[in-house]
């Protein structure tokens, strides 16, 4: 394939990854920003979203579209409730101590993976997208008669992939509006700035934490539902997704929502584009080192201001 169309294809693929990543990472960023804990089980909530989408799709009849909508409603709510329960039974009792939270969420990760393995199984299972038509994309060239459009071999995407990008954008906008325009969002931001002060003002910080943990997990689950028609639901799919969202959150600057979104786009797109120029594994090595070096020379992340 020629360079131009190739680059465009890589960018389209990068955009799908970026969209899902932004959604998932904003959940992680929310919990990190408000609660100051690293949730290692975040990837498992993403996996649970995908797995539940499969279950829902198989229980709900009436075609792929209805099943998909049902999954998009049920899975995040169920996962969010589960996460809030975990917060109240475990994290609250260890007082959100950063190190103990890491161990506890690793424990949670094992439990979730094993239960999924026992109930759902070890297979990667597909979920049918609500709609999916291949869209061949045109490219232009300067021919004898000036600018002309043509359809290069392989330059295409699917309507569902475009939908993923749009849906993620809408959802992230909704989260942003929720945080800035509603009272609940105001309370969360107040807790983020100073939880002691928030307590003094009568904000039920514990309930806020449970809600934030639940919402964060719900966003991961929603990302899982969105991606499952493109990839498949598998009980180990959370690991790589977790790593990527970690990177995104840190690069974006801890607790900075806007930074997280920009970083997700950056990481997602560069993953696609670097693979155009280098052999794939070498590209991964370079991208990984690049992330490390960005942090080395800008430890607060691209958009973080808080010196550490």
């Amino acid at each position: 394939m020629e360079f131009g169309p190739y680059l465009m294809l890589a960018m389209l693929e990068g955009a799908v990854l970026a969209a899902v990543l932004a959604l998932m990472a904003s959940g992680l960023s929310l919990t990190f920003g408000v609660m100051r804990v690293v949730n290692v089980a975040h990837g498992e909530f993403y996996m649970l979203g995908a797995v539940m989408a499969w279950f829902v799709a198989h229980l709900v009849g009436g075609g792929a579209a209805i099943a998909f909508i049902a999954a998009a409603v049920i899975a995040p709510l169920a996962v969010g409730a589960m996460a809030a329960a975990a917060d109240m039974t475990i994290l609250k009792r260890i007082d959100y101590d950063p190190e103990r939270t890491i161990v506890a969420t690793i424990g949670l990760l094992y439990v979730i993976q094993q239960v999924t393995l026992m109930t759902y199984g070890a297979d990667a299972r597909p979920v049918e997208p609500p709609f999916n038509s291949r869209i061949a994309l045109p490219w232009f060239e300067w021919g004898e008669e000036g600018l002309a459009l043509y359809y290069p071999w392989g330059l295409s995407t699917t309507s569902y992939k475009l939908f993923v990008i749009a849906a993620a954008a809408v959802l992230i906008l909704a989260v942003r509006l929720f945080m800035t325009r509603t009272k609940a969002g105001l309370i969360m931001r107040a807790t983020q700035l100073d939880s002691e002060m928030a307590t003094a003002f009568g904000i039920p910080v514990e309930r806020v934490y449970a809600a934030v943990f639940g919402i964060g997990a719900g966003l991961a689950a929603l990302a899982g539902v969105l991606i499952v028609p493109v990839q498949q639901a598998h009980y180990l799919m959370g690991g790589d997704a977790l790593l990527l969202s970690f990177i995104v959150v840190i690069i974006g600057g801890l607790g900075s929502m806007a930074g997280t979104i920009v970083a997700a786009i950056l990481i997602g797109m560069s993953d696609g584009i670097i693979s155009v120029f280098f052999s794939p594994t070498l590209a991964k090595i370079l991208a990984t080192l690049l992330v490390a070096l960005v942090l080395v020379f800008r430890p607060q992340g691209l958009f973080g201001s808080r010196p550490r």
Binding site: V38, L243, F246, I247, I250, L254, T281, L282, K284, I285, T288, L289, V291, A292, L293, L295, V296, F297, P299, Q300, G301, R308
Partner: peptide, 28 residues
């Protein structure tokens, strides 16, 4: 020399990244 310019969670991620690069290099 590089990673210790960072601290806390950033240090965690930087070491994670370097380690991941080593892992991929072993495969490469």
């Amino acid at each position: 020399l590089l990673a210790l310019r960072t601290a806390g969670v950033s240090f965690m991620i930087v070491t994670l990244m370097f380690s991941q690069a080593v892992y991929l290099a072993i495969l490469y």
